[in-house]
Design a protein around this nucleic acid. Structure first.
Length: 607
RNA sequence: CGGGACGUAGCGCAGCCUGGUAGCGCACUUGCUUGGGGUGCAAGGGGUCGCGAGUUCAAAUCUCGCCGUCCCGACCA
């Protein structure tokens, strides 16, 4: 029997001043966690019970589709060199040396170790498909740990990897994970959404994230209120209302006029220029100048050391000019996708002047010899956002101080290297599927499924023989769930000023029995009797037998996340206790003799 | 890594400007009291004032350096 009086559940009336978000404050106040350092937390009794239950659910569901492994957190440098990520991970990876001076790191994720096993062991298509998973501690040296358990440097992750002979097989493995993840999050009692995610340029053909809406989240999620469309900001699309182009000016001639320079003294921002010329920003072009930085994030399989990379950098750095509609915002992830994973940085003013002979605020597309296609690395690339395709008579920079140009028409007056989706969606724009207005929310990512493709199997040399005896690389998927984030998200979405409530499936206890007066023998006996009965029926029950005033116990019971409370008071003489549902605070009298049946009735059918 | 704030008892804070015996609330201990929403009374225990230098007769307080934590930004397969 779990007696509160004997347990360590250090509840706090006030949250530490450090805590900002609800889940952080409440998990500390409820005695679930304590902070050890920035982004490093200890789980105490209650917190550990909850995460253990979450892991049990994850295991049960994952065991239906895969096999559990347990891989080392301590990894030798070599396998990370093999995949090219020793370098790519940069400062985000914890690194250390052993006594012999050999480089080691703490795993941030386990594609390398899993693929290493695969390359050593898998030989034939007959061994495929495989789904391997583990529940493991990950380490990431976050530049800025924050928001309590939301962004930490050490955390538990369930990570799974699939190996298939072909893309069709990967589709099946991916779908299995999708369904499994839905079951896991459903069982954890979360309200979540599944969104299309940015899959990067690394051959990742599909990627979805499981998100929980909360103001504490760090991701921006675009979703449709009417249909099921939902996507990460980095991927989201929208329909734009048609824009009526400006009429060409001049002697009444039809069609499109040629570019005309206009004097725009002191007008630097889009808003200034639009106002000055008496037009809406939708008729203007926003010009952004970027410089590609050397490394190809997705690529570099062969990490030959600093010198070679720097040399390559010198060759590959390239100017990239972006054109967007004046009122649109550039999205870096989309830009990266358009550039096949290349990193970019904004150009310096003097670079713009040197390259384009234009002052920084007045850059425009005219008179520059743009690259013909994306592979033309000798000339600057002109990337034009799709929203400008088909538009006419736009206003843009004249490459000349205090001058803009009217009557710019893409494809006519200048020739883009390519069109691409480069802009961020904003709230209220139309859903690409159904046209209803889109909303944007912040959310926290609790799971991610990802079609990896061949990146790791190829770079690390995993090969199997196919039906024809031909050697091929297996195609992989990777699938993650943040264990603590399930807890955190659950707290974020179910709390009030007095505390939080978890689903019975992941709460440290399903019921707390409050003995309202521990000096009263009848009450005390009845309380223990109820606990015994419920435990016999398989419930996790906490008995609050502390010698405290009822008010103190009620406050604590409300705080600590337990979904049901039984108040044992004077009515025991009438065989009656009060059952309180924490989420609704709904109270009802229940006969002690029928207490087990009462709770069995509340249980989900499948168990 | 850039910008900002903070560091005094387990938690929340005052004291610092104007240098001189370290304080409040909660929590904790003991006794009494109370017993359905953090009961009341009384008596107690607990602090290297983040660390290190410096100035001074004297430093929580002034100066410098370091460390730590939080927030904004950058970053976030």
């Amino acid at each position: 029997m779990h007696r509160w009086s004997q347990l360590f559940i250090p509840t706090l009336r006030e949250a530490p001043a450090d805590a900002e978000v609800a889940s952080h404050k409440l998990l500390v106040r409820a005695g679930y966690i304590r902070q050890l350092g920035a982004g490093i937390y200890s789980f105490l009794f209650m917190g550990n019970r909850s995460t253990q239950k979450i892991m049990a659910i994850v295991r049960q569901e994952m065991d239906k589709i895969g096999q559990e492994f347990y891989l080392p957190a301590l990894n030798p440098r070599e396998i990370w060199e093999a995949s090219g990520r020793w370098k790519v991970m940069g400062e985000n990876m914890f690194r250390l040396k052993d006594r012999k001076g050999a480089d080691l790191c703490l795993g941030m994720t386990h594609e390398e170790v899993m693929t290493d096993i695969a390359r050593k062991e898998l030989r034939s298509y007959k061994q495929l498909p495989q789904i391997w998973y583990q529940i493991q501690t990950k380490f990431r040296d976050e530049p800025r740990p924050k928001s309590g358990l939301l962004r930490v440097r050490q955390f538990i992750m369930k990570d799974a990897y699939s190996f298939d002979i072909d893309a069709a097989g990967l589709d099946v493995s991916y779908q299995k994970h999708y369904e499994t993840y839905c079951r896991i999050f459903d069982r954890c009692g979360l309200r979540y959404m599944v969104i299309d995610a940015h899959s990067g340029a690394m051959g990742g053909s599909q990627s979805q994230e499981f998100m929980v809406r909360t103001p504490a989240g760090e991701d921006q999620v675009v979703s449709c209120g009417k249909c099921t469309y939902a996507a990460n900001m980095e991927k989201a699309a929208s329909k734009l209302p048609a824009v009526e182009d400006l009429k060409p000016e001049g002697n009444g001639q039809l069609g499109i006029a040629g570019p005309i320079e206009v004097h725009t003294p002191g007008q630097k921002t889009i808003e200034d220029v639009a106002r000055f010329l008496g037009v809406s920003p939708v008729h203007t072009i926003k010009t952004l100048a970027m410089m590609s930085t050397a490394e190809n994030k997705a690529g570099d399989k062969d990490d030959k050391g600093d010198k070679d990379n720097k040399k390559a950098a010198g060759i590959r750095a390239q100017a990239i000019v972006l054109l967007l509609r004046g009122d649109h915002q550039m999205n870096e992830a989309k830009l990266s996708t358009a550039l096949a994973g290349k990193d970019t940085r904004p150009m310096q003013e003097d670079e713009i002047r040197d390259l384009f002979q234009s002052p920084a605020g007045y850059l425009g597309p005219l008179g520059i010899d743009w690259a013909k296609d994306m592979n033309d690395s000798a000339k600057p690339i002109l990337l034009v956002d799709q929203a400008l395709a088909g538009r006419t008579n736009l206003i843009g920079g004249a490459n000349k101080d205090e001058y803009h140009v009217k009557h710019l028409t893409p494809g006519k007056n200048f020739h883009p290297t390519a069109y691409a989706d480069l802009r961020s969606v904003t709230a209220g724009e139309e859903c690409p599927n159904c046209g209803a207005p889109l909303r944007i929310d912040t959310a926290v990512e609790i799971g991610h499924i990802f079609k990896l493709g061949y990146k790791y199997s190829e770079s690390m040399g995993a090969r199997v023989l196919d039906h024809n005896g031909k050697e091929i690389a297996p195609i992989m998927g990777s699938y993650g769930i943040g264990i603590e984030r399930i807890l955190t998200a659950a707290v974020e979405q179910s709390n009030d000023e007095n505390g939080f409530w978890l689903s019975p499936s992941i709460a440290p206890f399903e019921v707390v029995v409050v003995s309202t007066n521990s000096k009263d023998e009848a009450i005390r006996n009845a309380s223990e009797d109820i606990v015994r009965k419920l435990e016999a029926a398989g419930f996790d029950v906490l008995l609050d037998d502390r010698d405290e005033r009822p008010g103190v116990k009620f406050k604590d019971a409300d705080l600590v996340g337990i979904p049901f409370r039984i108040n044992v008071g004077k009515k025991v003489t009438e065989d009656t206790v009060e059952v309180v549902q924490r989420s609704t605070l709904h109270k009802e009298d229940v006969k002690i003799s029928a207490i087990t049946e009462h709770f069995q009735g509340l249980r989900p059918a499948s168990r």
